[in-house]
């Protein structure tokens, strides 16, 4: 799957988490929704915002701000939950807002620096430089692998 997309044009969903512009391969995105009925899971690691009922399925929501080590925010109208699939399970990523969908050629993506706007580079597979901004391409698998 990855090999194919890497050789051809890649479509990226661009969203914002605090000051960081992140991109996610659109084929990895199951859906984007505005589901704010989040049940908090107290006692769990703090980057776990809680759980939601996604049409009968319990989906864990991860607060990307917390995951990136940035102060979290109250839910607001621009926020969205990006549902991705990881190892047979749907996971929700809470992001500040959805910006755009862009197409990128593989040669436009460079390997990630050690950090992107203060966020450790290990969560990203690469960086896409556009005329006006720097977009960090998310490495979902690495992001969702627990290290603690």
């Amino acid at each position: 799957m990855k090999a194919i997309t890497q050789s051809s044009v890649q479509e990226l969903t661009i969203f914002q988490v605090a000051d960081v512009s992140c991109g996610l391969d659109t084929t990895d995105v199951q859906e984007i929704n505005k589901h704010f009925e989040i049940t908090k899971a107290y006692g769990a690691p703090d980057y776990l915002r809680g759980i939601i009922n996604l049409r009968g399925e319990i989906v864990t929501v991860i607060d990307l701000r917390k995951k990136f080590g940035i102060e979290t925010e109250e839910l607001h109208a621009n926020m969205r939950i990006v549902i991705v699939e990881d190892r047979g399970e749907n996971i929700g990523l809470l992001v500040d807002r959805i910006d755009d969908i862009i197409t990128a050629k593989p040669d436009m993506i460079e390997p990630p620096p050690s950090n992107v706007s203060g966020v450790t580079g290990e969560y990203f597979t690469g960086v896409l430089k556009t005329d006006e901004s720097l977009i960090a391409v998310l490495d979902v698998e690495n992001l969702l692998t627990q290290k603690t």
Binding site: E37, A41, I51, E89, N90, L144, Q146
Partner: peptide, 23 residues
């Protein structure tokens, strides 16, 4: 069942959906 991330939380056995649709 809870997702992989919450499986470590020992206080929870799972989740459910209540009558109002909230989990």
């Amino acid at each position: 069942p809870l997702g992989n991330h919450l499986r470590g939380a020992r206080a929870y056995a799972g989740a459910t959906i209540l009558g109002d649709g909230k989990s």
